[in-house]
Amino acid sequence: MRILVRLLSTLLALAAAAAGALLALEVAWQWWRPGSAPLLVPWPAWQAALAGVRWDSTATRLAAALTALGGLLLVLAAAAARHRTVRLREPAPGVSGTLTPRALARLVGTHVRAREDVAAATVTASATRVRVRVTGARDAGAELAPDVTEAVSTVLSGLPLARTPRLSVAVEPSGERR
């Protein structure tokens, strides 16, 4: 998403520069030589077309709706292009660090899967939240969810994370039981 916003930003910059240059050029040219008016952009034709279209016509509404959609997409792309890394505590002033969410999920996943009572586990992580879904082994007790929660919170509090993410653990039915 960040690459997309960089690309969009570059294209928008080009478009703004070109539009500004054309606007200044056309207005100046029309002022200087009204007779040979359109220089590059056929704006008199646009003018005639716009003068013949009403605000409540379908074409106007459709064009406005499509433009609104384009603007919304730009806004959403810009809003989504933020850092998704997990900050680490500074070991010394002037040293900052991040961990990718994937790496955090993997660290947690390694610990969870190493347990005897867990058959399989899925971990997703972000800076604010860690979600663990475990499938219990055949001999797993009823206390699997609290046990895993406690183990993972111990792991998380041991990691040098700047802020401890919220933890949610869900146990999925294994299917082999019953």
Partner: peptide
Amino acid sequence: RALTFGAGALVLGASCVAL
């Protein structure tokens, strides 16, 4: 990001007024 967001918000606002 800010400029892309601003351009998008401007386009969105103008076309909403047109609508």
